[in-house]
Every structure is written in C-alpha cells, then in structure tokens.
Amino acid sequence: MSHPQIAPNLPYHPSGDQRFAQLDQTMAYYKHEPTALIQILHAAQHSFGYLAPDVLRYIATAMKLPLAHVYGVTTFYNFFSIVPRGKYQIMVCTGTTCHVRGAATVVERLGQQLGVKEHETTKDGLFSLHTARCIGACALAPAITVGDDVYGKLTPDKVPKFCQKDLKKYA
C-alpha cells in the first residue's frame, strides 16, 4: 500500500492528525474509486469514532465526490453516525421475536435509566443507545448487545437491575 505523494513535506490535514494520513492510505488502497465510498466511510468511522463534517468533507474532496452525495450515503446507513458516540454502543434488537417480547418497552426503560433517547449518548460519554433490526439471537429474546457482549432474556422488568449491575462493569 503506497501513499500518493502529492505534497510529501506537508501534514496530510491542516490539523496534523495522523488519522487523516491513515484515511489517505485507505483511499489510495481503493484507488479513490467512487464505488469504494462505503468501505472508506467504514474505515473513517473506525478510526474517528464518528463521521464529523470535517471528515466527510476531507473524504469528498479527496475522492472528487459531491459533498451532498457523501452525506446522503452516510445518513442512509444506520451504521454510520454523524454525531459523536459513546464508548460502548447499546443495540436493542427490534426483530420480530424481540418485538413481540417487548423490545419497544426495553428501549424506553433503558432510555429512562440512562437519561437518553435513541441515538443519543449518555452524559459521561460511555453509552449510546441504538436499535437494530435483528441481531439473530431470537432464542434469547428480548436481546441487547453492549459493545461486543450479548445480553439475553432482558425483559422490560429486568432493565433497572441490569442498568444498576451489569452496565456498571463498563464504567
């Protein structure tokens, strides 16, 4: 993977942030192909945590893509976030089985406990609350994931206890 030598003596981004240099490498790897936009957004979100306007502008300019197009693609996918997110993502499964088992109430109660609405981040910056279509753990319905951990059979009644006990482990 070689980096395009446009201005080798200058920092890649006026901020000097090395994550932009990484992003340059990723874009060069995909040869700045417009079709690779989603992969590049993936990589950017991985290193920046979320896709700030500055990052989107940087990608659009480097790939010669219209800003509005990049924004459209970014906001189409649930996975991409344009606002800062917490350290851990709480995903509440809202697939058919979890829905029947009260996923909507789980989201509501989790929100109450954490003091946030869907897509928002707690004040301590630890958790962001999201919903997912189906995480494929129907046997454990209602199921949620926190970061990479899965918690099953989390009925609405168990939510307060879950927040007080299990979520404390992440602090």
Partner: peptide, 10 residues
C-alpha cells in the same frame, strides 16, 4: 453538474 443537492437520511 455541481450536485449540491441530494437525498439524506432514509
């Protein structure tokens, strides 16, 4: 040819 407008969100 400037593509200032697009559709956002879903």
């Amino acid at each position: 040819g400037v593509h200032t407008l697009d559709i956002g969100n879903r």
